[in-house]
Design a protein around this nucleic acid. Structure first.
Lengths: 138, 138
DNA sequence: ACTTGACCTAGAGTTAACTATAAGGATTAA
DNA sequence: TTAATCCTTATAGTTAACTCTAGGTCAAGT
């Protein structure tokens, strides 16, 4: 079974060693082994767990909540329901984020069109009467 | 033409008056009028501009960059190209975010399944041999 | 043996984006 | 007119998530 140093894991996950040690300090990595002298030794399964952590982080989940999840994992089968519900809640949060992003993208695409036509006309004034000239979505 | 107080705008955009004043201090709202005594008076077009600001903010754009855009808007037609390029860049950033979120959602949905089956089995151990029992995407 | 470089901890510093407080001015309602 | 409820500025405090420094340990290479 492969093992990795903190520097290797940092490179692999595009994080800094500072960040990884910070996560450890916050209790996100209680599963990582140490050598007798204290150096962290990461297993493949640890990297997988860190990928889950990064996944949760990318949904905007705060580190304290991620720690709660990690704690549940350590507690075993008695917390299966909490963990399930946590992921179900994340699912609906992410779905809402995707909806939100879709609307954002539409507005941005409209702005791209707005500026493209303005550049072609040489002035933003072409849009001064938008409500009259182009009554609809623009 | 309608006008609004800072409190009304805050309510309308689900922000606090603190946040709006902070934005103003950071130079995001140079277009907002004042009464002779200094009270801000928001027009409908100001609220529309704030919605664009919120849109940019929701893509993760830092306030300093949003300020650069607002400054370009004040400078007039000479900055049309910059503004166009800025929105084109935002467009690809948002598209990348959507791709990322899609992958995140897939992982989360997998975890939902993982925990649902574990709950049904009464133990997480049903997944201990995933690689053998279910060789593929799980 | 010694130097180099990666690792360690504890704790301080940074940054962004608010969030709140203090002290006061203007406007409205009783 | 007096209280309430807005608003103002300046400035201080908070929070999350890093990010870095200081001072030290440890293992490998020359």
């Amino acid at each position: 079974m492969n093992t990795y140093s903190i520097g290797e894991v940092a490179k692999e996950l595009s994080l800094t060693v500072y960040t990884l040690r910070y996560y450890d300090k916050e209790g996100l990595m209680p599963f990582v082994d140490r050598t007798p002298s204290g150096t962290r030794v990461f297993k493949d399964s640890d990297i997988e767990a860190l990928k889950i952590i990064e996944c949760l982080k990318s949904t905007g989940m705060p580190i304290k909540e991620i720690k709660a999840f990690i704690d549940w994992c350590s507690e075993g089968d008695s917390t299966l329901k909490q963990r399930y519900e946590m992921f179900m809640e994340r699912k609906s949060i992410v779905e809402a984020q995707m909806e939100e992003l879709k609307k954002t993208l539409e507005l941005i695409e409209h702005k791209c069109w707005y500026y493209k036509t303005a550049i072609d006309a040489g002035t933003e004034d072409v849009h001064k009467e938008d409500k009259i000239v182009v009554p609809n979505p623009n």
